[in-house]
Amino acid sequence: MLSFILKRLFIIIPMALLVITLTWALIRIAPGSFYSGEKQLPPAIEENIKKKYGLDKPWYSQYLLMLGNVTCRTLAEGEVTKNGLQFSIGQTTVKCFDFGDSLKYQGQSVNEIIRRHLPYSVTLGILAYLLALVIGLAAGIIAALKQNSPLDYGSMALAMLGLSLPNFVLGPILVLVFALGLHWLPPARWGNLSNVILPVITLAAIYMAYIARLTRAGMLEVMRSDYIRTARAKGLNETTVLLKHGLRGGIIPVVSFTGPALAGLLAGTVVVEKVFAIPGLGNIFIQAVLNRDEPLILGIVAFLSILIMIFNLAVDISYGFLDPRIRYE
């Protein structure tokens, strides 16, 4: 088990490097750059800036420099920077995970920007995740139990709707109805709990719907299985049969979905934060892309991809707790 976790953690390193490399390359290949904006800089100044960020060097030197910064490298003689994680071994100082300064937000490091804006996205993401899980599971179980009843048809119709409405449509509709129409909730921005409700529902809807459908299908499948018949033959009541014998097997498909769901939630925050004007990581990411703020793009992509990989590992581990037949090798 432990060796499985270590092995998987270890694999994250080359995967992350690959993601970083591809992102870096894509930014380079795409035409234009941070400096090709509307404001034309005097050539001398542009030269200076390029020199400062090492953009005058050939691409492979730039690549190696970037790689050294975002992983680990020793500080050069006389180099002063507060960025990244720094520690000393004897005379030499080592610096790790430094994504540099943002090009747009002068004097602010990428790490600092991520740290500042992450809490908004995490709050949205976790709340949406919990909402999707709780409502999705409950609706799925009830639908399966009352198969072909109005309750079943009703919740599945709602799920179908949730699946087919993209969040950039659902968000504005919710705002129109509950904020601008009924004045129950604020239409946008960050503040107290009432600000969170609409964006969280917008973000969660599609996953709620998907989890409800997965749960229903999983439960229906399991409740037909031989061991459920055995449980009934023992004289157990339906609640015990369902919760003690059925649920574990029934929600395994849902667990498999939680990995992709997280990735989707993170991507979803990009849109939802934009719709609701929330200063989270997603919103910053859009800005970074529009600004061609290379270090910031790289930092956010690297951070999110590592987050997703760690979460997928957590999902794989949780299988083992659900299903004793799974062996980690």
Binding site: D226, R232, H245
Partner: peptide, 27 residues
């Protein structure tokens, strides 16, 4: 059906064809 459940497993019991699938793999 509640009365049937009191009999099932207590006064009449059943074993099934496939022992590989008739026991709950999760418990």
């Amino acid at each position: 059906i509640d009365e049937v459940r009191k009999i099932r497993g207590k006064r009449m019991a059943m074993i099934f064809q496939d022992p590989m699938t008739s026991l709950n793999p999760f418990l």
